[in-house]
């Protein structure tokens, strides 16, 4: 096997990206020191008072800290799982539709909700999910049960948040898997067909293994988001009745840090979230390398 003697062209190829990263990512990263300061804009980085871990302490010392972090984790993790699983399955199902026009039309339509902001969708959902709204009328006529207060009931709020988020994003998230499906060599299917494999068998043995790596990549990178449960969505949907199950780190930070210009505290929360994300990404990376012998990146 012939390999390259010189690797300098590879470094050259990476150079432009590295310059961008250095300028817009690594240079500003020095600002993380704010997490340990009571940052005042007019005093700047050198002048602001050092407060050690006080900013972090505040996050953990509130009476509702555990609840808020727990809410964030549950909502974010469930979103991560279903935003991976649903598009994965959907892409496979869509791939089975043999009429190209129908397939493309469906694909275009499901991608539409991605372009509506939560401000707009929030308004629509409040009406749609009202106790006498459309969703409840369907549910009561089909199942004959009492109306469900989707947005005002602690038992239902997370469910509503996760389902509506998956609904909004699955079409968009499907695109990656469709691209992966398009990359499968048709010869593999032809060969399987010759051997008399059913479509189900083909799916299990050819399709799914072919797109699992992409799913692993997407899933791992999504861990970078593990403590972001979706500020825009929650902020537009939550209300006092569901604070108990619906208040997340970002809404809490918005109310306490952003509205008050507490930049140090905001940085501390950001750092906390980044560290957790980084740890999880590392674990996922190791796990994939160990058990699947696959390097995600």
């Amino acid at each position: 096997m012939k390999t390259l003697k010189k690797t300098w062209p590879f470094h050259v190829m990476l150079l432009p990206s590295m310059i961008f990263l250095l300028l817009f990512s690594y240079l500003p990263m020095g600002g993380i020191v704010m997490a340990f300061q009571n940052y005042k804009p007019w005093l700047g980085f050198t002048g602001s008072e050092w407060v050690g871990l006080d900013n972090f302490r505040y996050l953990f010392e509130r009476q509702d800290s555990v609840q808020v972090i727990w809410n964030t984790l549950i909502i974010a993790v469930l979103k991560l799982i279903f935003n991976l699983l649903v598009p994965f399955v959907f892409a496979i199902l869509l791939n089975e539709i043999r009429r190209v026009k129908l397939q493309r039309t469906i694909q275009t339509l499901v991608y539409l909700p991605h372009f509506l902001s939560w401000v707009i969708l929030g308004g629509i959902l409040i009406d749609l999910l009202a106790t006498d709204g459309f969703a409840n009328r369907i549910i009561s006529s089909v199942f004959g049960i009492q109306p469900i207060f989707f947005l005002g009931d602690n038992d239902w709020f997370r469910f509503t948040v996760i389902v509506s988020d998956v609904w909004k994003e699955f079409g968009y998230n499907t695109i990656i898997f469709l691209a992966a499906l398009a990359g499968i060599n048709p010869a593999l299917y032809e060969a399987a067909e010759m051997d008399g494999a059913t479509r189900w068998k083909q799916t299990i043995h050819i399709t799914i293994p072919a797109i699992i790596p992409i799913a692993a990549v997407v899933g791992t990178l999504a861990l970078g988001n593990v403590l972001n449960a979706g500020f825009d969505q929650i902020f537009n949907l939550y209300n006092p009745l569901v604070y108990q199950k619906g208040d997340i780190i970002d809404t809490f930070v918005y109310r306490t840090a952003i509205l008050n210009g507490e930049m140090g505290f905001g940085t501390a929360i950001g750092l906390f979230k980044s560290v957790i994300s980084m740890i999880l990404i590392l674990l996922a990376y190791r796990a994939a390398a160990k058990w699947a012998n696959y390097r995600i990146f």
Partner: peptide, 17 residues
């Protein structure tokens, strides 16, 4: 976008107003 709003720091020694 949110994080950028949340987090804040200052590189340059640029305090004095």
């Amino acid at each position: 976008l949110l994080t950028t709003m949340l987090t804040a720091g200052s590189l340059a020694a640029c305090g004095g107003g």
